[in-house]
């Protein structure tokens, strides 16, 4: 031993440094939610798996985890859908085409899209939870013949909170998938269903013994969804969900995202339900 200091590998690239991207297009989705298309300033495609996220930086303001919501089959443009809830998301929202944003990623685990081949796939989304599921929907629809029924159950608070409205309409018009929507509270001319998303799950449309479910939304909504899926015969080993915790680094260094023994940034955000079942029902983990 030359010295007692360990030979810690010096990384090829510094994982703390953001890569610069150019804002190409910004689309307002809802009053507080927008979708942004960005491309790397240094060129090249951006490959990712559905369910993964990036850390997005606004100059001098901060950095936040945001899921990738675009098509993994179109890696030339990176797509994020963000809801403005605080200072960093507001600063990102203020960026215009031609401006620069910092990106670190992609990070985290992914929806096991390939492993679900041969099975029915049930998507259960709540609110902005549809954004992290959309890449999986794109990938499956691009490889449609390898899957059984594809069912989307989407719940939002009001009709005004429905994300990707045009796309939902297109999906509803397709014969090779089923898209069902429900709102907590009907407003305006809403003629659709009213209630919670679990109501849609109970309606079925999938082979309970072989369906795989991908669930994303607020934690309470996921709790009920998992329970209802279980009652409908979709057991915990076929249910995947995306957890949300505070994140400051996405590298396993800052400790903020810990969920029991795991780091949501590295072991998650997508977990197989039976792997976290024990903690999922404990208070304030």
């Amino acid at each position: 031993m030359d010295s007692a200091a360990p030979s810690i590998r010096l990384p090829a690239g510094d994982p703390m440094l953001p890569r610069l991207f150019r804002i190409e297009r910004v689309k307002k989705e809802l009053s507080d939610t927008f979708t942004m298309e960005i491309t790397p300033a240094d060129g090249g495609p951006f490959h990712f798996r559905p369910g993964q996220f990036n850390m997005l930086s606004a100059f001098g303001v901060g950095e936040v985890p945001i899921s990738i919501s675009g098509d993994p089959g179109a890696p030339d443009v990176l797509v994020h859908t963000t809801r403005v809830v605080g200072s960093v998301t507001a600063a990102i929202c203020a960026l215009k085409p031609g401006d620069t944003i910092g990106v670190r990623g992609p990070f985290g685990s992914h929806w096991p899209v390939e492993d679900a081949r041969g099975a029915d796939v049930v998507f259960v989304a709540g609110g902005i939870g549809l954004a992290p599921l959309r890449p999986a929907i794109y990938q499956i629809m691009a490889d449609r013949e390898h899957y059984g029924n594809v069912v989307i159950f989407y719940g939002s608070r009001t009709p005004e909170d429905l994300l990707y409205r045009h796309e939902l309409q297109r999906w509803r018009g397709r014969f090779d998938m089923s898209t069902e929507i429900i709102v907590d509270r009907a407003t305006g001319h809403w003629g659709g269903r009213v209630g919670v998303v679990t109501k849609l799950i109970r309606g079925g449309g999938f082979d309970r013994h072989h369906a795989v479910a991908f669930v994303c939304g607020p934690e309470v909504m996921m709790r009920f969804a998992v329970e209802t899926l279980g009652e409908c015969g979709v057991t915990g080993d076929r249910v995947y969900l995306s957890m949300e915790r505070n994140m400051k680094c996405a590298l396993g260094f800052c400790g903020h995202c810990q969920y029991g023994p795991s780091f949501v940034c590295r072991d998650g955000p997508v977990y197989r339900y039976d792997a976290i079942e024990r903690l999922f029902n404990v208070w304030e983990v």
Binding site: S3, A4, A5, P6, S7, I8, R9, L10, P11, D14, P15, M16, L251, G252, F253, R266
Partner: peptide, 24 residues
Amino acid sequence: LDRVFDNGQFTDPGYAKRRGGTFI
């Protein structure tokens, strides 16, 4: 701390530099 900051997937370059140069 060495294990925390070199976790098999990511290495903290600042920690690695400070630690690597240390005589104990």
